[in-house]
Amino acid sequence: MSIPFGYVSPEQQMRDKADYARKGIARGRSVVVLQYEHGILFVAPNPSRALHKISEIYDRIGFAAVGRYNEFEALRLGGIRYADINGYNYARDDVTARGLANLYAQNLGQIFTESPKPFEVELVVAEVGDSSDEDHIYRLTFDGSVFDETGLVAMGGQAEAVAGRLKERYRDGLPLAEALEAALFALTEPGGERFPAGQLEVAVLDRNRPHRKFQRLNGPKLERLLAAGPAPAAPSKSGRAGKAGGPDAPPTAPEGDLDTGSDS
């Protein structure tokens, strides 16, 4: 039996692609998504103010991604187009995270099998419902698999270790400050230093907000939340938060409330 030179079995090809994608995704930092008292919280260590890992897709739907920026940005923009076109064509309530997850799964699956280079991304598509039972969190991997998650998700970087630490602190119905504290505990390596507010990208899907549920938390608002968490370093942090929330705090920072919805 002769095997042509350069032949690679499909099994080997898929394994190679999967290894390649996994390595790429593990290089970055983790992102965590978890349910809290009034909705869903997204936390990503991200020093960039311009390149977002977390984004709004539609009224009730948020998006978080790890991996290569240009790849998940293309997916994010496609998702917004999908949501807007369906919401315009039918009704705003007819846009669901499930439909969006299916679209992503189809696209990622196709890329994984047909393209020589798979996408090095992992995504979360989350939808906040009227109660926590109606929340949906879908995790999508580079090969187009969809996982229906409950409670919490950690992806990218040392995802398993982060998820393990997050499970230690997580329980149902955590208040926002405690949920954020749990997320930061999980994202910080044991013995490592906490990320300061400026290095964090934080957003919520708050079911109590009118119209659009997505809201970014940054600047003084985030500082206050960080200070409110039951961290041992609370006293020093609250001092800083007091300063940051002072009179010179801009009402509409470039990344501030104007960009994401009305001030709550």
Partner: peptide, 23 residues
């Protein structure tokens, strides 16, 4: 490669109307 839908091709403008007009 891998693009299953025009929804993922960037039309270069962030206008919904223009996008729907082509899609």
């Amino acid at each position: 490669a891998g693009m299953v839908n025009h929804i993922f091709t960037n039309s270069g403008i962030s206008s919904f109307t223009e996008f729907v007009g082509s899609y």
